[in-house]
């Protein structure tokens, strides 16, 4: 409405309007009105819960009990005291999360790049392969988890069945012992989410101007030099995006470990999110669980900041 009114007004006839001031194209509220739908969701499902969570973390909170006693910072301090109730379990789970992130992120950043480079070329059946690499990502974590449990079960699993067929009878305990359990979790996550990162890379690759490659050809650059000096710099913003997103996704890993290993052996594959869910929903201690969530969130924010900083300095030099 406001827009129509503003535009309908003759530009030169505005009473008392200085001649050089441009005519507003829309009312003041318009941009905010456009943002309202998202803002409502953001406030309702992100901002308010995030603030309310701080309040929860300061109580001995159990939503089923009539009273939520004030706890001050005790939920936090116990995590940093060696005798604290959750300290050992929580930091073990953080360690597990760290191991998973360190092992999965390199594969999830490099392999999809390779895939993207290949499916970016022109060859017969390209569309099919693009779809094939992306297909697993469409599946829910429950489907993937169940699938891999059947595949990897140490006894009666498909993988060990085939290994036996080709003469390997050691029956690796894929989901019950380390390091096998980590190998399985990382491999299934790479298989599952590789397609997503590959598509992002693909979009980034198609954004790089073909003239740059032509110029490189004229300068006599080989394919490695073209990759090193044209493709990689062109992909820098995409790389940062993929890296940040992948680190966050890996650090929030829950479904795979919950469904496939269920923390075995001896809770060594129990990730931070699993531990938080365990304390909050099974032990009915939402206060302690909220405190752990904030610690995890702070760690992830710090890592993301470091990420951005690293990439920015690279760009500046």
């Amino acid at each position: 409405m406001a827009t129509t009114v503003a535009e309908a007004r003759p530009a030169h006839g505005g009473a008392g309007r200085p001649a050089n001031k441009p005519v507003p194209k829309h009312g003041r509220a318009t941009p905010y009105l456009f943002l309202v739908p998202y803002l409502v969701l953001f406030l309702g499902f992100i901002a308010i819960p995030a603030i309310y969570g701080i309040w929860i973390s300061l109580h001995d909170y159990d939503y089923l009990l009539p009273n939520q006693p004030w706890n001050g910072l005790a939920n936090y301090t116990q995590l940093f005291t060696s005798t604290g109730r959750d300290a050992a379990d929580f930091w073990h789970s953080m360690e597990a999360t760290g191991i998973f992130t360190l092992c999965s992120v390199p594969f999830l950043v490099t392999l999809p790049l390779g895939v993207a480079l290949i499916i970016n070329r022109k060859f017969p059946g390209r569309t099919f392969f693009r779809a094939a690499f992306f297909a697993p990502y469409v599946l829910g974590v429950a489907v993937v988890g169940l699938l891999f449990r059947f595949l990897l079960s140490p006894r009666g699993g498909v993988v060990n069945g085939y290994l036996n067929d080709i003469g390997i009878h050691s029956n690796p305990p894929w989901i019950t012992q380390l390091p096998w359990a980590w190998i399985s979790l990382v491999a299934m996550t790479v298989w599952w989410t590789l397609g997503f990162n590959a598509i992002i890379y693909l979009a980034g690759l198609q954004d790089i101007s073909p003239e740059l490659y032509e110029a490189a050809d004229i300068d006599g650059a080989g394919s490695w030099q073209k990759f090193r000096n044209v493709t990689l710099p062109g992909l820098r913003p995409v790389l940062l995006f993929v890296l940040t997103l992948t680190i966050l996704a890996s650090a929030n890993m829950f479904g795979q470990a919950f469904l496939v290993t269920n923390g075995a052996p001896a809770n060594q594959t129990r990730t931070a999110i699993m531990e938080i869910a365990n304390v909050g929903l099974k032990q009915y201690r939402q206060g302690a669980a909220a405190a752990m969530s904030y610690i995890l969130a702070i760690v992830l924010i710090l890592i993301s900041l470091v990420n951005f900083r690293l990439f920015r300095t690279n760009q500046d030099t």
Binding site: I48, I51, Y52, I54, W55, I56, L64, L65, N67, Q68
Partner: peptide, 17 residues
């Protein structure tokens, strides 16, 4: 956190049982 508002109001409706 008074400046943030909301929190107190939230607490008031959250604790009801």
């Amino acid at each position: 956190v008074g400046a943030l508002g909301g929190a107190a109001a939230l607490a008031a409706c959250g604790g009801s049982s």
